[in-house]
Simulated assay, not measured.
Amino acid sequence: MLDVILLEDEPVLRQELGEFLEELGYAPVCLSSLEEFERRFEPGRHRLAIIDIGLPDGCGLELIRRLRTAGEPVGIIVFSARGTSADKVLGLELGADHYLGKNADLDVLAATLAALVRSLALVPAAPAEESSCWVLDMGPRVLHIPGAPTVPLSQQDALVLRCLMARPGQNVTRRQVVEALGAQYLDYDQRRLDTQMLRLRRRIGSLSGRTLPVKTVRNTGYCFYAHAEIRA
């Protein structure tokens, strides 16, 4: 998967864009300020960036100027509510590869990202090797993450991961996940499942610093795309 660093200060939009990027198969790092960007940005890893202009601690245009002055090889898409011709010209002159208004359809954002990937000749990371195996241990209910701290799990989270990790690389339907939780699919509030998946992703990310390798398959379910092992 290709990493995308997303800089957007509005919480709801940041969450929606992060989930959309996951659905497209990217690995988003979602940030809300210039300070966070400076602290988390890794030039060798983050070759794609989506940057808002109006941020709580400064202007995204200044960040773009600094990145280009430093010669960072990152593809940049501005995604901003400031969409006048003058704004777009300035953003492109300072080094953005593309400039989209926030009223743009998300499919346009997806196509722009894909075009940027092609133009930069980016290649997703190679499939996980055996040494990069994610191991779910159902006994103590912990997730062993390659190169990162072990994460303890709730019973619900462990059941969800067991359902997904038992079929690595395959699409698992929402019905299968709900039934793995011991619930009736038709009676189950789908928003509960969405909330649980979001919290699980955040928990793994906050405790391990790694992105949970689960892709949302739009209108279908989920896919665990890394090498996986389950221990009873």
Rank of each mutant, 00 (worst) to 15 (best):
E23N: 10
E23D: 13
E23F: 03
E23C: 10
L24K: 13
A27Q: 15
A27H: 13
A27D: 12
A27M: 13
P28N: 09
P28V: 04
P28L: 07
V29R: 14
V29N: 09
V29I: 15
C30R: 09
C30G: 06
S33T: 14
L34V: 13
E36M: 11
E36A: 14
F37I: 04
R39T: 14
F41Q: 09
F41P: 04
E42R: 15
E42M: 13
P43Y: 06
H46W: 05
H46L: 07
I50G: 12
I51A: 12
D52G: 13
D52H: 08
G54F: 10
L55P: 14
L55Q: 12
L55I: 11
P56C: 02
D57R: 11
G58W: 04
C59L: 15
G60C: 08
G60M: 06
L61T: 12
E62T: 09
R65A: 12
R65W: 03
R65C: 04
R66V: 01
R66H: 06
R66Q: 08
L67K: 01
R68K: 15
A70T: 01
A70W: 00
P73V: 03
V74W: 00
I76G: 05
V78F: 05
V78E: 04
S80D: 04
S80T: 13
A81D: 14
G83D: 15
G83I: 05
T84R: 06
T84E: 06
T84S: 15
A86D: 15
A86F: 09
K88E: 15
K88F: 07
V89M: 14
V89T: 09
L92A: 12
E93S: 14
G95M: 06
G95F: 05
A96Y: 05
D97A: 12
D97Q: 09
D97G: 10
